[in-house]
């Protein structure tokens, strides 16, 4: 079995197993903890509505805070949207999704994908620079922050290299295998560290949204 076969076979399977099981384990480890009934008299019964509202509304910082967090929010939005374009709108990626899900959707032109990938890469680098230079971020950052950054950036870099066939002497098949392996690393790590916010964001925003709605308070 050569490297590409390994990447396409067992490596992918294990990464997907870790992704699914890790996610289930982490969510179960939280939601099955005890949940005491709240005996205080609610001001409003719109908890579900409050949870849903906050899941959406917290995507944009409140006006009171906007100017202070503008830079990191713009960068954050740029790289999240950029990543989504690269992951979901690139033809070869769509074919991979089709092999798993059984259906496909239209792709964007390759030039658009390349631009999105480069912009994403730059915004991620800018965020790393901010993390390394801001006293607040330096203090609160740990291994998870830097490792998660690295496993997010790696597929972008290896993907761009494979597309451009710039492998410093490596064959295209090897480049592709390295790209695939970097993606599986991202998959395998996702449930365990901060990247878990991909699913935790709904839980935590929803929790606060429901609690505050019960009190009739704004979130």
């Amino acid at each position: 079995m050569d490297l590409l076969e390994f990447a396409r076979g067992p490596a992918m399977q294990w990464a997907l197993i870790l992704l699914v099981l890790g996610t289930c384990w982490r969510i179960a480890g939280i939601v099955f903890l005890k949940r005491k009934p709240d005996l205080s008299e609610p001001r409003s019964h719109g908890q579900m509505a409050g949870a849903l509202r906050t899941i959406f509304s917290r995507s944009v910082p409140a006006r009171a805070f906007r100017s202070r967090v503008l830079y990191s929010n713009l960068l954050g939005y740029t790289f999240h949207i950029g990543l989504a374009i690269v992951v979901f709108a690139y033809q070869p990626h769509i074919l991979w999704f089709e092999s798993i899900l059984g259906f496909q959707w239209p792709a964007l032109p390759n030039a658009v994908i390349s631009v999105a990938a480069v912009v994403t890469l730059f915004s991620l680098v800018a965020l790393l620079v901010k993390r390394l230079t801001s006293p607040v971020l330096r203090l609160i950052s740990n291994f998870d922050d830097y490792f998660s950054w690295a496993v997010t950036v790696a597929p972008l870099v290896t993907g761009l290299m494979a597309v451009a066939d710039v492998g410093f002497g490596l064959r295209y098949e090897t480049l592709l295998a390295v790209h695939l392996l970097s993606v599986w690393l991202l998959f395998a790590w996702l449930p365990f560290g901060k990247l878990g916010h991909a699913f935790l964001v709904f839980l935590s925003r929803g929790t606060t949204g429901a609690l505050f709605a019960r009190r009739g308070a704004r979130t």
């Binding site: 005890k34 971020l137 901060k194 916010h197 839980l203």
Partner: peptide, 27 residues
């Protein structure tokens, strides 16, 4: 002791973005 699903959700969810500093009068 009185740590339930709610607090655990919060403990798991921090992404170390540091934005909370910008809302705190002490910071």
């Amino acid at each position: 002791k009185d740590f339930g699903a709610t607090a655990a959700t919060y403990m798991e969810s921090c992404i170390h973005c540091g934005q909370c500093a910008e809302a705190c009068h002490f910071y």
